[in-house]
Design a protein around this nucleic acid. Structure first.
Length: 269
DNA sequence: ATGGTTGAGCGTCAA
């Protein structure tokens, strides 16, 4: 009695502005669960009707005014899982977790929005970079301290491109926030606590793979200066259950699109 | 070294 569970993740860069694009994502990939980042909407203004009209009757979200914000929209009943700390003590709405009520048994889902980290890759000169490194370190320690995970999926905009071919030029980006050694080593250590990289399960490490292209490129497709900032990780028991993965690159050309594109994984659970 | 674009919301700040 297994089913194919489709879980998508997308930094939507304002949920209220891009509700029509959420509908397009639902039509195109037909995900059972959609994890969003940068919803930029306080909880009391969360536009719940939109997702419900698209068939996502269950939701868990944590938002604030102007910045950040995460949401998990689901066709499958869920229960909110409030076991994580307030990362870095900032109360800034960067993580929400749920347990999905899948018929074969519960599936745990974590949706993260890791701090972008500003421009200067120096934790002394740049508080945002220091916050980013601290956030990753806290998350690493927290997952490492948990018992071994089962049927768990971690997704989100982690704002770090860990591998050489997760960026358009490894050499040119070594000093650019998102690909500096302290970040890539930190993210690798976090992943190694409990997870398998589900995107790289399908695409070899030596092939370019991106999920984000800057708004500042005139022709993103021609220059193709992308980075893989968005990720899907699964607990090792789900690795044999991975059935497919899609990076919806075409979404970068959707009218008034986000600078990130959706990523979706299919898991037989 | 700089600039390039976008969103929130009305100042600029964050990305």
């Amino acid at each position: 009695m297994t089913q194919t569970l489709r879980i998508a993740t997308w930094n939507i860069n304002s949920l209220r502005l891009r509700m029509p694009l959420l509908s397009r994502l639902a039509e195109t990939l037909n995900p059972d669960v959609i994890c969003l980042q940068e919803t930029k909407v306080p909880d009391e203004l969360f536009p719940a009707d939109g997702p419900v009209a698209l068939g996502y009757q269950h939701a868990a979200y944590r938002g604030m005014k102007g910045y950040n914000g995460v949401a998990i929209l689901s066709r499958i009943p869920l229960a909110r899982l409030d076991i994580a700390p307030d990362w870095c003590g900032k109360g800034d709405c960067r993580h929400v977790a749920v347990t999905l009520d899948v018929p074969s048994g519960p599936v745990e889902v974590h949706d993260f929005y890791v701090p972008a980290g500003g421009d200067v890759p120096d934790p002394v000169a740049n508080d945002k970079y220091a916050h980013k490194l601290q956030f990753v370190a806290e998350a690493t320690n927290w997952f490492a301290a948990r018992p071994a995970l089962a049927r768990t999926v971690l997704v989100g905009d982690l704002n770090i491109a860990p591998l050489e071919h997760d960026v358009w030029s490894h050499k040119q980006l070594l000093d650019v926030v998102s690909h500096t050694p302290p970040e890539t080593e930190g993210l690798t250590a976090w992943q190694a606590t409990r997870f398998v990289d589900a995107m790289r399960h399908f695409v070899p490490d030596d092939e370019k793979l991106y999920t984000w292209w800057s708004y500042r490129n005139k022709d993103w497709r021609a220059s193709n200066r992308g980075r893989r900032l968005d990720h899907i990780w699964v607990s090792p028991d789900l690795k044999p259950a991975l059935r497919g993965m899609t990076v919806l690159q075409d979404a970068r050309d959707w009218p008034q699109g986000s600078d990130h594109v959706p990523v979706c994984v299919e898991i037989a659970v």
